[in-house]
Design a protein around this nucleic acid. Structure first.
Lengths: 178, 178
DNA sequence: CGCATACGATCCGTTTCGGACGGTATGGCA
DNA sequence: TGCCATACCGTCCGAAACGGATCGTATGCG
């Protein structure tokens, strides 16, 4: 069995984050993911504890446990791990993105609800997307000139495009239904 | 324990789809979801067989089994089920939408890859989003004047906004690195 | 009549999920 | 110095989600 067959997107998040930050504990990963990828890829933290262990067993990471104190486990990329990550970056991406938007679901079923529901929903969504846009713009402003992270920050532009698209849609809908 | 606490978005997809189409078998649900919600909310078909049964136990659906032949089970909404659905439609939606976009993940980690990777990725994504836009536009054209489904088709507009946003982003990126 | 194909349903092992919990270090204050 | 509050850090576990494999049933066609 190919190693790559045993890997999920989660695996690559772990490999990639360690590649970017250097040797990391699970807690480091948790915080790093929370501040970055977490915004566009939902992630239960428990995975950041189990997944690295799996990757060690597959030979893509190795681990070192602190001698005393908390006995934190620090994971670092092996050569095989880096190769695997690079291969993944180079290969085609057949899956289309997936969305999970409760609001869109509610909108789809709006016929069943009360007349006012759609307007309330739209108002809420407008507010939520505005808020998120503010967060992204703030991040962009704070990191814009840090060369070290500039290349990662490009995903923020995609996030902003998406948020603006959603905002446009819900605003227009709100105009229509009042 | 409140009934609503035992419900997931999946539950509302089932309740909502039955509300829109009337009494349905699991297979009906599977096809209906595949043609509509499936485009913006990923769904393993097995759930459409287990979830209705759960909802029967919660009193939100009731079921009738064909006497002979395939003994299909047809599910219909109970009053409690309709109330539950309506309550959900009326209540606030605190969660922000979630995306899962492998391409965005790869872009975030692009520093680790080869220089050409980003351009290849962008080219792929441009093609994929163009294709999806064509599908949506086709659906829109075909159903535009069917009053029966017009209200649901509004979610298509949101889907199109999202796809165009993604397309804009990847096209611009391609211009920059391509 | 027999076979190919689409229809319809279920099973089951694996992975994900997320919330709850429990232990550990640190700094401040009494 | 000892205690407490708080942040830090890690794990567990039941419940869903997942998806692929499988299996019976009807239908149409040669």
């Amino acid at each position: 069995m190919l190693v790559a067959d045993r890997l999920s997107p989660t695996s690559y998040v772990v490999l990639g984050t360690i590649a970017l930050r250097g040797p990391s504990t699970s807690y480091d990963l948790k915080r790093a993911v929370g501040r970055s990828i977490g915004y566009f890829w939902h992630f239960p933290h428990a995975q950041l504890y189990s997944e690295p262990q799996r990757l060690v067993e597959l030979g893509l990471l190795d681990a070192e446990t602190e001698a005393q104190g908390r006995r934190r486990r620090t994971f670092r990329l092996t050569d095989a791990g880096l190769d695997e990550l690079r291969a993944w970056l180079a290969e085609p991406t057949p899956e289309h993105f997936q969305m999970r938007d409760i609001a869109e679901l509610k909108l789809f079923f709006n016929e069943v609800g009360e007349p006012g529901d759609v307007a309330r929903l739209a108002r809420e969504q407008v507010a939520a997307h505005r808020e998120r846009i503010a967060v992204y713009e703030d991040m962009q402003a704070r990191y814009a000139d840090l060369d070290a992270v500039a290349k990662r920050m490009i995903t923020l532009r995609l996030g902003l495009e998406m948020e603006h698209a959603a905002l446009r849609f819900w605003s227009a809908l709100l105009d229509e239904v009042g």
